[in-house]
Simulated scan of single mutants.
Amino acid sequence: MKPALLSDNRRGPAQIWNSAPQLAQIPAINPATLVPKGARVVIIAPHPGDEVIACGGLLQLLSTLEYSLQLISITDGSASHPGSTVWPAKRLSVVRPQESVEALRRLGVPLHSLKWIRGGFA
């Protein structure tokens, strides 16, 4: 897999990371090494959205390879802004899962092809 490069000429964190010689020494991992064919992929995230932040690229790749995907979100994300009048818990409990759905859609992960358990804890 080739490192992603930004199109402008700035040397931000991505360019520094991508040009690190140590990165070239890391062997590529075959998806079948991580998840043998026929096995189910289970991603457990503490909050909605964390599954995409931590494993978005992996979810996209494994979905493309037609692996069975199981997502587990422990909380509903409603406690992320305690005391906020702009983002009260009731609003966040609705918005956070919607953010995850939109992120997965943008990654091209078909929602009908995965199972999603939402723990519903605050």
Rank of each mutant, 00 (worst) to 15 (best):
K2L: 09
K2F: 04
K2Q: 10
A4D: 07
A4G: 00
L6H: 12
S7Q: 13
S7P: 01
D8G: 08
N9F: 15
G12P: 06
G12M: 09
P13E: 05
A14Q: 09
A14Y: 13
I16T: 10
I16A: 07
I16H: 10
N18P: 00
A20M: 09
P21E: 04
P21S: 07
Q22G: 09
L23K: 12
L23W: 06
A24Q: 15
Q25C: 01
I26F: 03
P27H: 07
P27Y: 08
N30S: 13
A32S: 15
A32G: 00
L34Q: 12
V35C: 15
V35F: 10
K37W: 03
K37H: 13
K37Q: 15
A39T: 12
R40T: 11
V41I: 05
V42K: 03
V42H: 14
H47Q: 14
G49L: 06
D50K: 02
E51P: 01
E51I: 09
E51D: 14
I53W: 12
A54W: 07
A54K: 00
G56K: 00
G57T: 05
L59K: 03
L61C: 09
L61P: 03
L62M: 14
L65T: 11
E66C: 09
Y67K: 00
Y67D: 02
S68C: 05
L71N: 12
I72H: 03
I72N: 06
T75F: 03
G77C: 02
A79L: 02
S80H: 06
T85L: 12
V86A: 13
K90N: 14
R91T: 14
R91K: 15
R91N: 12
L92N: 06
V94C: 11
V95N: 07
R96E: 10
R96W: 02
P97M: 13
Q98A: 15
S100Q: 07
V101Q: 10
A103F: 05
L107P: 05
V109S: 02
H112E: 07
S113G: 00
K115F: 01
K115Y: 05
I117H: 14
R118W: 07
G119I: 11
G120N: 04
G120P: 03
G120Q: 10
G120Y: 11
F121D: 03
A122Q: 14
A122R: 10
A122D: 13
